[in-house]
Design a protein around this nucleic acid. Structure first.
Length: 462
RNA sequence: GCCGGGGUCGCCUAGCCUGGUAGGGCGCCGGACUGCUAAGCCGGUGGGGGUCCACCCCGCGCGGGUUCAAAUCCCGCCCCCGGCGCCA
């Protein structure tokens, strides 16, 4: 059983070099790894040989009755032991270095991924819906549609929609990030009343639709061990996103993807059990350490939110079709909500180490004049399963390889709420609730049903 | 948190006291036999190295230690089960 990256390293290093180049990383890593791997194998042969000689003597001692002969053999074993320990120490050192570099390798970029070092190079693959475009954003809109050869029908607005952060805080007055900043820090929030109902309704909507498609509903652990986390993410993500529980080997999950990947940690999966399709629901905790001052206002980019996540264990030959299935599932959810979006094929430089290919679903934000990421769907092929030791056992000949894993957002609550606040806003500040959510709000007497209304202005101001 | 019991190949289990190449059952894969199927029979069943044949190394929760030699003895840690305590 060989991991795809190791196989490429040994048999076809040019593929790896090319992949690293597309990610704007140093391709010489491949050459360092190759020589290290060669050195490791050579050293391993030497160590194994000494171990063998030592084992032979050790075994013969057990059979030897004559005390003189025994003594002689023990002396010989002791001598070999010294040699063995010296070599083993060297092997251990090389092995650790090799392992470290191997685990720093990002997944191989799929051939269909556009090359580029920023999201400018991500390529839209399709558009859906009829965006509402404020007059002044027309040029920007064309830049994001026609430039890519798409003719997207739009509704021209001659009034400027209020941004989601202002809607939340000032128009609807259903969120308080100022107080939350005092209590917990920036990028936290209090949500109230109708927006809380909306948050829940969105999650249940996603759960309802996906479980109907046969996905198994999972409530996973919200904290996981370091070992599992390192199987799922790369060092960069770890440092930018992950909160640690002090004094314990526990980390807050940044998405349900993490514990769902751990569900089959160290397991063998029979091929006829695949694909295993899961949806997890969980809070997500993220440091947003690399975000700087981006999206500081409102609830677009926060330290904590709720998400329904799709996660699939698949056979290698079916994983690329399943990636399409996952992004289509997400599209159906956003179509149901009536949010106009585009799907982009994310550029090689923006992929993240685990992913071989990634689609983002971006919703048009009328107050910003931009498509913004709501969903991310990745095929991580065998990158996570190698690290988590999740094997696929083929019936034919009991052959073992690694499963493929995939993940995709279904609904991330707060971000989707920002999209709703901007897209379904009326000139008077009323926010119309997507019809599809109604059945999930209906059972609750205090939940909003059709719309969320702005706080009435003070009489004196009118 | 305390006390006791336990963690062995995909699953179950023997071996641990008394150190000397981890045995059996189930499942699965393959083979021979067979009109077909099953039973029964034979072989295989983790990771790595290797001229990918032979063969060799490593693997008994994890990490150390003792020893020529550790599943076995010693120390630390993790997890599971039972009892007590605490508790939404």
């Amino acid at each position: 059983m060989t991991w795809s990256l190791l196989r490429y390293l040994r048999e076809n290093p040019e593929v790896l070099r090319e992949s690293l180049r597309k990610r704007y990383m140093d391709p010489s890593l491949v050459d360092r790894l190759r020589s290290l791997d060669e050195q490791w194998r050579k050293l391993k042969r030497m160590v194994d040989e000494v171990r063998h000689r030592h084992n032979v003597i050790t075994r013969s001692i057990a059979k030897t009755r004559d005390p003189e002969e025994r003594k002689k053999l023990i002396e010989e074993a002791k001598r070999l032991l010294k040699e063995r320990e010296k070599l083993e120490e060297e092997l251990k050192r090389v092995e650790a270095e090799r392992e470290k570099l191997l685990l720093s390798l990002p997944n191989i970029v799929h051939e269909s991924v556009p090359e580029g070092d920023s999201d400018e190079y991500s390529v839209p693959v399709r558009f859906w819906g009829r965006p509402r475009v404020y007059r002044e954003f027309l040029d920007a809109f064309r830049e994001q549609t026609e430039k890519w050869g798409f003719k997207v029908d739009y509704e021209l607005l001659d009034w400027k929609p209020v941004g989601h952060a202002d809607m939340l805080e000032n128009v609807l007055k259903l969120g308080n990030t100022i107080k939350a900043a005092e209590v917990a820090g920036s990028r936290f929030y209090y949500l109230f009343d109708d927006l809380v109902w909306l948050d829940f309704a969105l999650l249940v909507y996603a759960i309802d639709r996906l479980t109907s498609k046969g996905y198994r509903l999972v409530l996973p652990p919200y904290m996981i061990r370091h070992r599992i986390l390192m199987g799922v993410i790369d060092m960069e993500t770890f440092q930018d996103a992950i909160y640690k529980i002090e004094g314990e080997d526990l980390y807050l999950i940044a998405t349900a993807e993490h514990p769902l990947a751990g569900l089959y940690y160290n397991e063998e999966v029979m091929e006829d059990e695949l694909p295993i399709k899961l949806i997890g629901i969980s809070p997500c905790f993220r440091k947003e350490a690399g975000a700087g001052n981006r999206d500081l206002k409102g609830i677009f980019r926060v330290h904590q939110f709720h998400k329904v996540e799709q996660y699939v264990y698949a056979k290698p030959e079916e994983s690329w079709n399943i990636l399409e299935e996952l992004i289509h599932n997400a599209e159906e959810l956003f179509q149901g909500l009536g949010l106009p979006y585009r799907v982009v094929n994310v550029a090689s430089g923006e992929l993240g180490a685990p992913a071989a290919k990634k689609y983002d679903l971006e919703v048009w934000m009328p107050a910003q004049g931009r498509y913004r990421e709501m969903v991310s769907a990745s095929n991580t092929t065998d990158w996570q399963s190698y690290r988590l030791n999740i094997r696929l056992v083929r019936r034919k000949g009991m052959v073992r390889e690694y499963v493929h894993t995939l993940n995709s957002t279904a609904i991330a609550s707060t971000r989707t709420i920002t999209a709703i606040l901007e897209n379904f806003q009326e000139p008077d500040g009323t926010v119309v609730i997507p019809k599809v959510l109604r059945k999930y709000l209906e059972p609750f007497s205090k939940a909003p049903k059709d719309a969320i209304y702005p706080v009435k202005k003070e009489k004196t101001n009118e």
